[in-house]
Structure formats: structure tokens, C-alpha cells
Computed example of a mutant assay.
Amino acid sequence: MSRLVIVTGGSRGLGLAITRSLLEAGYSVSTCSRSLGDTLPGLLEVHPDRLFWQQADIGNAASTQAFIDATVQRFGAPWGLINNAGIAREGILATLPLVEVDHLIQTNLTGAIQVARGVLRHMLSRPGGGRIINISSIIGQRGYTGLAAYAATKAGLDGLTRALAREVGRRQITVNSVAPGYLDTEMSGTLSAGQRDQIVRRTPLGRLGTAADVAPAILFLLGNGGAYITGQTLTIDGGITC
């Protein structure tokens, strides 16, 4: 059986691109999201033996654990985890409702920790190590007006990456972050035309990124080339932070 990779939030955007790339590379994939989306049904038909989906809310511990349990029951212990699921909320911190702050933290940070904790219990039981990749953001490194709470959750993911890499390294499990820049996905849909133009002007490569720019880095870190890379944050942003 091919190696299993769990991808959270795999029904659209970057998560969907990662799921598709993994299937094309021969991996088995188990993914979850709050809704099935428009594209996953077709992929489930094409790859019925290597693709599994279950509805789950990463911000809910019971929902997350049910997804992990169902995955292991079907495929066995996973080789990799891509902590991709996340939400974005824009607003000046002084006026951002606390319920929105709590939702951001619960989904983007606590949820990722809960998934990693649940997956590691199975990953540690299998021989040969494994891979964990957290999808953070350049916002966690540089900040952006109106995204203070979101930035805090993404910076937290990078901290989780560094500490967890030390915890599980002796078991040959690598833990890294991938920090995309501004991608042309649904999550950037709230940007105005002026904001998008400004970002493009500030980016040395002269464009927004795409999910297809990020997926190859995920495949590299999952494969043999990533075997001696751990505790790192790989920035993929067209040079905007250089």
C-alpha cells in the first residue's frame, strides 16, 4: 500500500492542490473539511482506493479525533500530516470581537495542535519515521495591518514546528513549516484591487503566488530529499519578504 498522508482542509484552495499533487505522486490521502466542495467528489471517483474524505471541523476536538480514528481504521498509521486547515479574519485588533479572536486561535492553532497530537500517537507506532508539515504564513513573520490575531496564530505554528521537531526527531519524524506569501486563492479574495496591485508591485517576481507554486515544496519535504530537514520554516513568497 502507498504511504498515507493526512491533509486537513483539503476541499479547496491550497489544501485541494496539495491533495491532488499527492495523489498524482502516488500517495494515499485522507482529508477533511467542513464541506465536500465541488472538486473532491470527482477525485473520490477517480481514486476510490487512495482517497478518503470525512466532514470535520478542526476547531472541534471530538470532530477531529473522529476523523483521525476513521482514517487509521481504513489505512493504518499515517506517514505524513499536512496541517493546512485554517481561517482568516481581518479587522483592527482593538475592535475585533473576542469571539472572532477565539475562533481564529481555536481553528488555526489549537486545532493544528490537536491534529498533530492525535496523528503522532499513531505515527510513533510505525517504523521508519514520518513527516509533519504545518502551513503557516509570511503574515506570522512580518505582520500586516488588520491581521494581528491571524498573525499570532501563524507565528504560533512556526513555534510549534521548532519545538515539536526536537521532541520527535529521535524517532526520525521531521517537522517543518511552509510559509506561503500572498496566494491567488479564495483566502485572498478579500483584498481590494488596490491592495492586490500594491502586493504585486512589492513582489520581485511580479505576481501573486498560486497553490501550484507551493505544492512541489510539500512533495519535496515529504520525500527522501527532506529526510534531514527539520525544525525549519520554508518561505514561498516570490521574494516579497527578502
Results as ranks from 00 to 15, higher is better:
Ile105Trp: 07
Ala112Trp: 01
Ile113Val: 14
Gln114Cys: 09
Val115Gly: 05
Val115Gln: 11
Val119Ser: 11
Val119Glu: 12
Val119Asn: 09
Arg121Ala: 14
His122Met: 03
His122Gln: 06
Met123Asn: 01
Leu124Pro: 13
Ser125Arg: 06
Arg126Asp: 13
Pro127Val: 03
Gly128Ser: 00
Gly128Lys: 05
Gly129Cys: 15
Gly129Asn: 07
Gly130Phe: 01
Ile138Phe: 03
Ile139Asn: 10
Ile139Arg: 14
Ile139Trp: 15
Gly143Cys: 05
Gly143Thr: 09
Thr145Ser: 09
Leu147Met: 10
Ala148Asn: 11
Ala149Trp: 09
Ala151Gly: 11
Ala152Tyr: 07
Ala152Arg: 15
Ala152Phe: 08
Ala152Asp: 10
Thr153Gly: 07
Lys154Gly: 03
Lys154Thr: 04
Ala155Ser: 12
Asp158Ile: 06
Thr161Lys: 03
Thr161Gln: 01
Arg162Gln: 12
Ala163Asn: 13
Ala163Ile: 08
Arg166Thr: 00
Val168His: 02
Arg170Cys: 13
Arg171Lys: 06
Arg171Glu: 09
Gln172His: 14
Ile173Met: 09
Val175Gly: 06
Asn176Met: 02
Asn176Glu: 04
Asn176Leu: 00
Val178Leu: 12
Gly181Phe: 02
Tyr182Leu: 11
Asp184Leu: 11
Asp184Pro: 03
Thr185Asp: 05
Thr185His: 06
Glu186Phe: 15
Glu186Gln: 12
Gly189Lys: 05
Gly189Ala: 08
Gly189Leu: 03
Thr190Ser: 11
Thr190Asn: 12
Thr190Leu: 09
